[in-house]
Simulated assay, not measured.
Amino acid sequence: MQTECPHCNTVFRVKESELEQADGQVRCGHCLAIFTADNPYNAINYQTENNAVESPDINEEETDSSPDTQHIVADVIPPELRAESRKGKKRFGFIGTLILTLAILTGISAIFLQYAFYNRDKLVKIAELRPWLNILCQQTGCTLPPPKDRKLIILTSKNIFSHPNVENALMVSASIVNQADFAQDFPVIELRFENVRGKTIAGRRFNAVEYLGIPKEQISKMQPDISININLEIKDPGSDMVSYEFAFL
């Protein structure tokens, strides 16, 4: 006789003797489900009335006890997790990661170049960076400013006294040193005079020609760690002057 699996709707033949021996319990040879086949003809009639399609995988000669029954195993691996799918995605992922990495590096380089361009006056003071900045400017057509750091020019000695040959005049002598590790232009020196209340009562700025006393074309740069003597002749600011200060500009 024939019966139908209520789980996968597969119709197959089963012997009545086997059915009686198993107390009506049978195992589907297709999906391996166990069910009661005590009213097989009603199941077949229900299938026919509802236009159900018979399973094409098992023919009428197959039984649930046949050792040659072909079982279909359900695939629980989603397509996106299959090995072949992962390989394809891995290749795409590598290319995407490479493109993203190059884009990030390009963005970082652009930011660094902008920073270097707008801060070249500060960066040029760093001796280790100057060769790289020179290469950068060669590529971009910019010009590096000469390194300059007036804070590294220090006053090592100073003295002020009455001029020996000119009345109501003073002589100012001092020594300055460039403590930077690079040569830089001679600074403009500002000399200020203050009274007892700390108020500036007189002052003047002197360029290198004035305090070195040599022609402009003979002036080069302040070399590192070389003491430079300067001399100035100024009018006496008066008896209110109690102190004076140097500033390098």
Score class of each variant (00 low, 15 high):
Phe193Lys: 04
Leu102Ser: 10
Ala110Gly: 08
Gly24Ile: 05
Leu136Ala: 14
Gly203Ser: 05
Glu54Ile: 07
Gly24Thr: 12
Ala202Phe: 08
Tyr115Arg: 03
Ile160Trp: 02
Arg130Asp: 04
Pro78Ile: 01
Gly29Met: 03
Phe206Ser: 03
Pro224Asn: 01
Ile219Trp: 04
Gln218His: 07
Glu18Leu: 15
Ala74Asp: 00
Lys148Asp: 12
His71Gln: 09
Pro79His: 00
Leu113Glu: 11
Leu123Gly: 02
Glu54Pro: 05
Val11Ala: 06
Ala174Arg: 05
Ala174Trp: 05
Lys90Thr: 04
Thr200Asn: 08
Gln21Phe: 12
Pro6Leu: 02
Leu81Glu: 06
Glu210Phe: 01
Gln218Ser: 12
Ile153Leu: 10
His71Met: 09
Asp64Ala: 10
Leu212Gly: 00
Pro131Asn: 10
Glu128Cys: 05
Met1Thr: 14
Arg120Ser: 14
Lys90Pro: 00
Glu18Thr: 15
Asn119Pro: 04
Tyr244His: 02
Gln114Leu: 09
Ile219Cys: 04
Ala202Trp: 00
Gly198Trp: 03
Glu49Pro: 00
Ser66Phe: 07
Gly93Val: 00
Leu102Trp: 10
Pro78Val: 00
Asp225Glu: 14
Cys31Asp: 07
Glu20Ile: 15
Pro187His: 06
Phe182Ser: 09
Arg205Tyr: 01
Asn165Ile: 08
Pro131Arg: 07
Leu136Val: 13
Asn50Cys: 02
Tyr211Asn: 01
Pro224Gly: 10
Leu98Ile: 05
Asp236Val: 08
Leu136Gln: 10
Asn159Lys: 13
Phe117His: 13
Arg192Ile: 03
Cys28Arg: 07
Ser55Gln: 05
Ala116Leu: 06
Leu19Gln: 13
Leu123Glu: 03
Lys90Ser: 02
Asp240Thr: 13
Thr156Cys: 11
Pro187Cys: 08
Leu123Asn: 04
Glu54Tyr: 09
Pro79Phe: 02
Asp68Met: 15
Gln21His: 12
Gln179His: 13
Gly88Cys: 04
Phe246Val: 02
Lys151Phe: 13
Val177Asp: 07
Asn45Asp: 01
Gly141Glu: 05
Ser239Asn: 11
Ile104Arg: 04
Tyr115Ser: 09
Thr3Ala: 14
Val11Glu: 01
Asn50Ser: 07
Val177Trp: 11
Gly88Ala: 06
Ser66Ile: 14
Leu249Pro: 01
Leu152His: 10
Glu80Ser: 04
Ser243Val: 08
